[in-house]
């Protein structure tokens, strides 16, 4: 409830911010000769504020507010910055090489930020709904344990029944599945098709097996499901960690080129009062 109320406030203030920017746009485009400079100042201030979020995390010992608040500020200032950016470029596609590069960098940074916002909002819920929280760094350990369990089961069954069906089946179908992360993209889109396909293979094999082997295959199915569960966590948690590998470098690159852009503007815009 409290979260909903807080988000309602944030959306209110964000909407207000958008309206203010809209009015500013309408006023500046007709009244300011150099509205690009004014909007550029606001834009760079917003970018610096956005960049401070990452910097703040490194100096968390200094009481500058909670990380949650900073996250919220980062999100909404980032959203508002998109409108500010459009105002800055006058809703036109830029022409200069540097300006085009800056636009591309900003768009990519913004889009990765939006993607990050989406996945950080939805993926945790999905992981919680899936159940069985697992630490991302422990996933390889868990995967290894599952592989060992499957191999032990198969060996025991093979020794008991003196049949090589399961061994062959494991070698041909299950070794790659249990050895490494699988179906990462399909897990992003919540697809169970690879799992069902593999289980169907296992079930298809049962008609050729005796009771002991069938029981072993049932246990193997459970382990397959556990592995699928682990892969699900690997996929979503991996995205949650790796999207910053794109967003943050793009942001820094954008800031560096923006610094050059600011240098050029200050050099050539003339002594125009504002």
């Amino acid at each position: 409830m409290l979260l909903k109320k807080r988000r309602r406030y944030m959306w209110f203030w964000t909407s207000l911010g958008f309206c203010a920017l809209l009015l500013y746009t309408l006023y500046a485009r007709t009244h300011f000769v150099d509205q690009a400079f004014d909007s550029g100042l606001l834009l760079i201030a917003a970018m610096i504020l956005l960049a401070l979020y990452n910097f703040k995390k490194k100096i968390s010992f200094i009481p500058l507010g909670t990380s949650k608040s900073w996250t919220q500020i980062h999100i909404y200032v980032g959203l508002l910055s998109s409108f500010l950016f459009l105002i800055h470029i006058s809703f036109k596609y830029p022409a200069g090489a540097l300006e085009i590069l800056l636009t591309i960098l900003y768009v990519l940074t913004f889009l990765t930020g939006i993607i990050g916002l989406i996945i950080t909002r939805f993926f945790p819920n999905r992981l919680t709904a899936r159940g069985h929280e697992v630490v991302f760094e422990n996933i390889p350990i868990e995967r290894k344990n599952l592989r060992v369990q499957v191999e032990q089961l198969i060996i025991e069954t093979a020794n008991t029944t003196e049949s090589k069906h399961l061994i062959d089946f494991y070698i041909n179908n299950l070794v790659p599945y249990f050895s490494s992360p699988s179906n990462l993209i399909m897990h992003l889109v919540e697809s169970r098709r690879p799992l069902r396909a593999l289980i169907d293979k296992v079930n298809d094999l049962k008609r050729y097996c005796n009771q002991t082997e069938i029981e072993s295959l049932n246990k193997i199915n459970e382990l397959i499901k556990s592995k699928d569960h682990l892969d699900y966590h690997n996929s979503l948690q991996g995205c949650l960690k790796l999207w910053l590998f794109v967003h943050i470098p793009l942001a820094y690159a954008m800031l560096i080129f923006a610094a050059l852009h600011i240098l050029m503007v200050l050099s050539f815009r003339g002594r125009i009062p504002f």
Binding site: A129, N138, H229
Partner: peptide, 17 residues
């Protein structure tokens, strides 16, 4: 849908910083 499979084995190795 929550998956009700066997719980993953615990391990003392925590996520390192």
């Amino acid at each position: 849908m929550k998956h009700k499979g066997p719980p993953p084995p615990s391990h003392p190795y925590n996520r390192p910083n």
